[in-house]
Design a protein around this nucleic acid. Structure first.
Lengths: 145, 145
DNA sequence: GGCTAACTGAGAGCGATTCTCGTTACAACT
DNA sequence: AGTTGTAACGAGAATCGCTCTCAGTTAGCC
């Protein structure tokens, strides 16, 4: 799976007429190593002195190419995670309403399927084209309690 | 139900040692009349020339008192809706990834229950105290297509 | 080896939200 | 009816995550 990670990334970017440069590869590597969605500052800390503007620009590019997804949580920071196709790990989030931290969590497959179909049925009735569902639990994390 | 709306609001604010002033009442009325979550600029448009700073301050206060909830959607605006206790209407959202608009949608009660219990089970395992679940469908709305 | 377009980095700029602060309204107690 | 303490108000300044600008660099292609 890790063998394909960078190859898949390169191909998807190529399809958008963009290159898989060192900076973009660095971002993908940091996100792949993390076990939860990261903010841009967090990516910068863990990376190799990348300029802030490049990080934001490339994150937006990666999102446009479908390689990463932006998650808006409890605080003012947007968090990013790799697309599930790249990680083979469908999951949802526990969002702390106190500190804004986000953890990953998985649900039983049967439940996933019923959520998916119920949401799509409701959406179609409104002329809404569903792309992804978002099931999050908002609460207070262990550290904040 | 509408009879109790302002009374409930006044009581909850009182419990937080805050008053139910004209500005706050105006915000609650605008939100109650809307059929979807509104941004602060939208509340200002529909209200009676309330200053921006008062709208933001009071919105934050109402949120602290549990009367309204903030929803972070696709665009850069936070949207607010009345607490479900005040509207008797548990629901979820369709979020347009193109224009950021948010619509309300309801799910079957049985599905709600299984989502709730599955999420809480997963959360408890992490020492996470769940408060509310958030089930949203992200896609493209009828107008943007 | 030159052409073209994508990419980079530093800093300025943007815009939704929050803070500051002097003023005003309200409630309780004389 | 005055007084007093505290909450709320409004206008504008400030904050801060994020985006844009632009001159210089690099990668892919003939």
């Amino acid at each position: 799976m890790d063998v394909d990670l960078h190859e898949t990334a390169a191909i998807r970017l190529r399809n958008h007429e963009q290159r898989y440069t060192a900076n973009r590869r660095a971002i993908v590597e940091v996100l792949a190593a993390a076990e939860r969605p990261l903010t841009v500052p967090e990516v910068l800390e863990r990376g190799d002195r990348m300029p802030q503007s490049s990080a934001y620009r490339n994150m937006a590019l990666l999102e446009a190419a479908g390689l990463v997804h932006r998650i808006l949580g409890g605080d003012e920071y947007a968090r990013y995670e790799l697309d599930e196709d790249l990680t083979d790990h469908h999951h949802h989030h526990l969002i702390c309403s106190t500190c804004g931290a986000i953890e990953d969590v998985t649900l039983p497959g049967a439940l996933e399927a019923s959520i998916e179909s119920a949401l799509n049925r409701a959406a179609r009735r409104r002329g809404f084209a569903g792309e992804q569902h978002r099931v999050d639990l908002v609460g207070v994390c262990a550290r904040c309690r």
